[in-house]
């Protein structure tokens, strides 16, 4: 079959136009893709900044919490002990040697207890540094302090192998743990608290369970009352994890936080 020169010309022009338009489309597509890449990089940068901001906030809150505990302990415990020491010593009558000996002995006992309390406070101050030594130890220290108050029966189980994890994630998780404990102190009216920390399938799972009065999770979240609960979700999400809260009125509460941890 032969084609006329006009038909050939038409065919040739058509092919040439297609071959010209194709790279133009390609260049346009690459420019478009590149713009999306820019947007993605900007979003990534924003997320990184938000994470750094939240991490800094968490570190500040951990410090604030420690200072609050110290202030409370200085006022309620050490202050009282030292006050008693002063009162006991001022009541000493040197002429009545028998009673004086007894009172000095009691004052000595109060002073010893004060020293013990100060040492415990110093250890708590080092609690922030404990996070650097490991999450397991930091949680144990916090619980040890809490048990001193003898208000709660606390059990702590952990099964975390020695793996090099992210300190930033540990700080965030530690803060989430503190927030959950605060919620128990303020609202739960609990008697028993159980903490479980375990490592499984490259994830770190922390669960905090209490036998308190419980609450309706959906209702609290809807009413925007539970800023602490929102924070739990937000911060767990920021480190790539999730926080699940199980609770019902009269049935206690369980906060389960799971984060990727390699």
């Amino acid at each position: 079959m032969q084609i006329s020169s006009k038909e050939f010309l038409f065919l040739f022009s058509l092919i040439t136009i297609i071959f010209l338009i194709a790279p133009l489309f390609l260049i346009f597509y690459i420019s478009l893709y590149n713009k999306r890449k820019k947007k993605y990089i900007e979003e990534k940068e924003e997320l990184k900044k938000a994470f750094e901001h939240e991490l800094l906030k968490s570190q500040m809150e951990v410090r604030e919490q420690t200072l609050k505990t110290i202030a409370l302990d200085l006022h309620d415990n050490i202050g009282q002990l030292l006050g008693l020491t002063i009162m006991t010593l001022s009541a000493v009558n040197v002429e009545d040697k028998e009673k004086a000996k007894e009172k000095i002995g009691a004052a000595e006992e109060f002073a010893k207890r004060s020293v013990k309390e100060v040492r415990a406070l110093a250890r708590l101050l080092h609690g922030e540094e404990q996070i650097n030594r490991g999450l397991v130890a930091a949680i144990a220290l916090e619980l040890e302090w809490m048990e001193k108050a003898r208000q709660y029966q606390v059990t702590y189980d952990h099964n975390v192998p020695e793996i090099p994890g992210s300190k930033d994630k540990e700080t965030m998780l530690y803060r989430l743990f503190q927030e959950s404990l605060n919620n128990i102190f303020r609202h739960a009216q609990a008697k028993e608290i159980h903490i479980n920390l375990e490592y499984s399938n490259q994830r770190l799972l922390l669960s905090i369970t209490d036998d308190g009065i419980g609450f309706n999770v959906n209702e609290v979240l809807k009413l925007q009352k539970g800023m602490g609960l929102h924070n739990l979700h937000k911060r767990a999400g920021m480190i790539g994890g999730e926080a699940i809260i199980h609770s019902a009125p009269g049935a206690g509460t369980q906060v389960a936080i799971s984060i990727p941890y390699i």
Partner: peptide
Amino acid sequence: SGTLLYYFGSTASNVFFDFLVSGAIMSL
């Protein structure tokens, strides 16, 4: 981009070179 436009666009001219320099087309 310029290089791609030029060489991609000239593909048809290169493929049909013999036709394009033949008498029938040249007489257009």
